[in-house]
Amino acid sequence: MTTDILLPIWKMGRTRLTNQLAAITPECLSRRIHPDSNSIGWLFRHIAEVELLFAKNVFGRPLQVKLSTVGQGIKDLGHFTNLEELKGLLDESGRELEAAILDQEDGSWTTEVTTREFGTMTKAEALSRITTHTAWHAGQMAIIKKYATAG
């Protein structure tokens, strides 16, 4: 597998997120389907954090990642309501993950990596996992935006 084949696949998968961004307003960020579910703002933050974790721990980017949405017992307390800040973090995570993908040598995609957060998988499997993770949560955001009310 080569990087020039895998990068466009990742970019296309990420459009499930990026195509929605223009329609997200500050008022949308607090929306959730159920009082115990995650809000759009929390999902924005979560996607960015996990993309940065993959860039760092799977693909070797020298990053500091502050986690607010990853770990046991983490709950959405409604803190992620700054749209510009969240969009900035998503832009950063997209840039860092793209740079991490581009840094990979073509022959390295079958190399296994082990991380505390994600276990053991090849770099190609990890790329598939982060692509589907982002698309999964982007789908949740679309459903929340369509059907949920504020707060």
Rank of each mutant, 00 (worst) to 15 (best):
T2A: 00
I5E: 07
L7M: 08
L7D: 03
L7H: 03
P8A: 02
W10M: 07
M12Y: 14
M12C: 11
T15G: 11
R16F: 08
L17I: 06
L17S: 12
N19R: 12
N19L: 09
Q20V: 06
A22M: 13
A22C: 09
T25C: 06
P26F: 03
E27A: 11
E27I: 05
C28S: 10
C28E: 12
R32I: 06
H34G: 10
D36A: 09
D36K: 12
D36R: 09
S39G: 12
S39W: 09
S39A: 12
I40Y: 03
I40G: 04
I40F: 03
I40K: 03
L43C: 07
L43N: 14
R45Q: 15
R45I: 08
R45L: 12
H46C: 11
A48E: 11
A48N: 08
A48Q: 12
E49V: 03
E51R: 05
E51D: 10
L52Q: 06
F54K: 04
F54T: 07
F54Q: 05
A55N: 01
A55D: 05
N57F: 04
V58L: 05
V58D: 01
R61W: 02
L63W: 04
K66E: 15
K66Q: 15
T69K: 10
G71I: 06
G71S: 08
G71E: 12
Q72R: 15
G73R: 13
D76L: 02
L77P: 06
L77G: 15
G78M: 10
H79S: 14
H79Y: 14
F80K: 01
F80C: 02
T81P: 09
T81V: 14
T81I: 13
N82Q: 09
N82K: 11
L83Y: 01
L83K: 04
L83R: 06
E84G: 04
L89P: 02
L90S: 00
E92C: 04
S93Q: 07
G94T: 14
G94P: 08
G94Y: 13
G94H: 15
R95S: 08
L97M: 01
L97I: 01
E98W: 01
E98F: 02
A99Q: 06
A100S: 08
I101D: 02
I101G: 01
D103G: 02
E105M: 02
G107E: 02
G107A: 04
W109H: 00
W109A: 00
W109L: 00
E112V: 09
T114I: 07
T115F: 01
T115H: 03
T115D: 06
R116Q: 12
E117W: 08
F118V: 03
T120N: 01
M121R: 10
A124D: 02
E125H: 04
A126R: 05
L127R: 05
I130C: 07
T131A: 08
T132F: 14
T132K: 13
H133R: 12
T134M: 10
T134S: 13
A135W: 08
H137W: 12
G139A: 10
A142M: 11
K146V: 10
K146A: 13
A148Y: 10
A148D: 13
A148I: 07
T149A: 15
A150R: 15
G151L: 04
G151A: 05
G151T: 02
